[in-house]
């Protein structure tokens, strides 16, 4: 069969399929904005701009090469790359915060394994804290507190998110709780990032190391003898979260009172869905 005939056959075949499908009405509508070509066509503009910006930045700013590794000379500051600092910060929290390590670090130490004698006889061998030790827990390695204790809830939250947050709402305004949880996540990751370079911060801004409210707090809550930096890292996420929640609620009330047109439409639309 010649190429020409074959080509012609393809064209006819395509036409036949088209009309057949139209007659069959097997086409199903989708719930979503089409990715191709509608989304991609407008993305292409941004992508061209991005490519240009990339080449521009690259030609202006080459990346430096550090001095070679010296296993004997540990540098004063060791840091992972910036996008892993949050993880390093969680490790440091696990190490530094007495609230996680028990009074005087009583809950951490050499880890017990279930094949160790200590695992089975905690009342006998455990540290003298006056707190009854659950045999299942056992003292943990301080690194484990940050590694397992602080990373796991985060990862579980992110993985499980679509399975516990259901429903049709799609805008932060419709679900103030989820919106403020997102803000909390963002803020905690940011403050963990900041805390991970705490020695640099103490060095440059010694005021950050000032102990806060020691006399007032010490008699009641020993484990809260934090410095300014720790208090900021703990309070900023909470403030932002509460602020987001209250802010959205207040904004919604106000919109409702005013009978805002867009707000009403959105609400009706939400009901229709």
């Amino acid at each position: 069969m010649s190429l020409k005939l074959l080509t012609q056959e393809y064209v006819e075949e395509a036409q036949r399929m088209d009309s057949e499908q139209r007659a069959e009405k097997t086409l199903r509508p989708v719930e979503g904005f089409p990715f191709w070509p509608h989304e991609m066509i407008r993305n292409i503009v941004v992508l061209c701009f991005f490519t240009a910006a990339m080449l521009y930045v690259t030609s202006l700013m080459p990346y430096y090469l550090e001095s070679p590794a010296d296993p004997a000379g540990q540098p004063a500051v060791i840091l992972p790359d910036w996008y892993l600092l949050w993880s390093y910060g969680l490790l440091k929290w696990g190490n530094d915060l007495e609230i996680l390590n028990g009074p005087g670090g009583a809950w951490v130490g050499e880890p017990w394994h279930f094949w160790d004698r200590e695992w089975w006889t905690p009342w006998d061998m455990g540290p003298d804290t006056g707190i009854v030790q659950m045999p299942i827990v056992g003292p943990m390695n301080a690194e484990t507190v940050g590694l397992i204790g602080l990373h796991t809830p985060l990862i579980i939250f992110i993985f499980a998110l679509p399975f516990f947050d259901r429903g049709k709402a799609q805008r932060p305004q419709e679900q103030p709780l989820m919106a403020s949880l997102g803000v909390f996540l963002l803020a905690v990751l940011s403050t963990a990032t900041i805390y991970s370079i705490n020695n640099v911060i103490y060095d440059r801004w010694p005021v950050m190391a000032t102990p806060i409210l020691q006399e007032q707090i010490e008699p009641f809550l020993q484990f809260l003898q934090w410095d300014l930096l720790s208090w900021l890292c703990a309070l900023i996420p909470v403030l932002l979260t509460v602020g987001t929640y209250v802010g959205i609620r207040v904004w919604r009330e106000r919109m409702m009172e005013r009978g805002d047109r867009v707000y009403t439409l959105n609400r009706n639309y939400h009901r229709v869905r």
């Binding site: 590794a69 540098p75 840091l79």
Partner: peptide, 27 residues
């Protein structure tokens, strides 16, 4: 992370040490 290690510079080396210690600390 893995790319950061490859040049085997000061930072690479000590970042690898952190990673190594983190994996060893896994129960």
């Amino acid at each position: 992370y893995t790319g950061y290690i490859l040049p085997w510079s000061q930072l690479s080396y000590w970042a690898a040490i952190i990673g190594l210690e983190m994996s060893i600390a896994t129960p």
